[in-house]
Amino acid sequence: MEVKLGFGAVPKPQYVFVKKDNDYCWYMLSENDQKIPIHDKALTGVINGIEINKQVDTAFGGVVKIDLYILADKPYIVRSGKDSYFSKSLLLSLDALTSEQLRNPLTISVRPGDSNVVFCNIYDPVTYRSVGVSWDGHNEIDWQALGQKVSLKINRIQNLNQEPIQISANTTASEIHAILIAQSDTYLAQLNWTPEQGREYLQHKYGKRSRLQLTDREILDFIDYLKLQLTQSSPTHTNS
């Protein structure tokens, strides 16, 4: 992505919101919170992160969203309701993609359904082929567990020093938790944290003394914190 020198807009991610309204299915907000419809049906870029349990405060109270991070001509964050059809079709598609495919540019498209429903389709922008997903048995899917699998796969890819974890459809919740514990072990070792340092942080942050007591969401949050500490401690972030 080219860096433009001189005066310009504040370099922050552009949020994109999903909602079926007249002839568009997603939109942005202006600085005064006015809707800016996006009539294009697709956004192409590299997926570089996902949050599956993003707590957002709205005028109607707290809600849970899914935030998908995409690097294109600028960084975008596609925000959708956690239980929306868009989010569910997004998770199904991302789960079907291999780690290698997730390293390459992908096209995220919106497709209107009945009423206010919006579906998501993912395409390979080189072959023009869409990711085939099945909605068979979708009412029995554990969407929280599926979201955790997808989050683990995508966010692990961003750590270039490690191979992405291969998670199959048969991976159990306990196995996922064990994988998360092992991933945190790696970061703790790289940071040279002592067991007591870890326990003190967990007690202060989560009110728990052991990673085994953390929920999957809490340990993912802990891993993100450790990754941030590694980034800030790297030579490129130290003062000369």
Rank of each mutant, 00 (worst) to 15 (best):
V131I: 13
G113S: 10
Q158R: 07
Q232L: 14
V18Q: 09
F86K: 05
R156G: 11
I165Y: 10
P37H: 12
K35T: 14
T236F: 15
G45V: 14
K82D: 02
Q183N: 03
L212C: 04
H177A: 06
G6W: 08
Q14M: 11
Q232N: 14
G147V: 04
P75I: 04
S168T: 01
L94Q: 09
I141M: 10
E31G: 06
E140A: 12
P105L: 01
D124E: 09
N22I: 03
I52M: 11
D221Y: 05
L212V: 05
L91S: 02
G113C: 08
K54M: 03
L146I: 04
L5Q: 13
Q213K: 03
K74A: 12
N239V: 14
D57R: 08
P164D: 04
S210W: 01
K20Q: 15
D114G: 15
E140M: 04
A173Y: 10
V3K: 14
S109H: 00
L188H: 03
L29D: 13
H177D: 09
I176F: 01
L188E: 14
Y206Q: 03
I38C: 15
V118C: 07
V126R: 14
E175Y: 03
F7I: 00
I70V: 15
I108R: 06
W135M: 07
T172M: 03
N22E: 13
D33K: 11
N155L: 03
Y206A: 02
S89H: 03
P235W: 01
G45R: 14
H39V: 11
G62N: 08
P13N: 11
N104M: 00
M1P: 12
K208Y: 05
T171V: 06
Y69F: 07
N121M: 13
L212K: 12
P11V: 01
D142F: 05
I141E: 06
Q229A: 11
S87K: 00
S234M: 01
R199V: 06
N161K: 04
V150A: 08
P195W: 00
Y15R: 06
Q203E: 08
K227I: 11
T186C: 09
Q213W: 00
V131L: 08
G207H: 02
F7A: 07
I154A: 07
I50E: 15
V78D: 08
T44Q: 15
G45C: 15
D73C: 04
Y225Q: 09
V150F: 07
K227A: 12
Q229M: 11
F7C: 05
G62T: 08
Y27M: 11
Q166S: 04
K227G: 09
P75C: 05
L68C: 07
L152D: 02
Q144H: 08
T231W: 00
A59I: 08
A169I: 01
V131K: 07
Y27S: 12
Q101G: 09
V56M: 07
S93K: 04
L5G: 13
S87R: 00
L188S: 06
D33H: 10
T186Q: 10
A182N: 15
W135L: 10
K88Q: 07
R211A: 12
K227L: 11
Q101D: 11
Q190K: 10
K20A: 11
W135K: 05
T107C: 02
K205A: 02
Y85E: 01
Y76S: 12
L230C: 04
L228H: 13
A182R: 14
R199F: 00
S93C: 04
I70T: 07
K54T: 06
Y27R: 12
F86E: 00
C120E: 05
E175D: 08
K54W: 00
K65Y: 02
S240W: 09
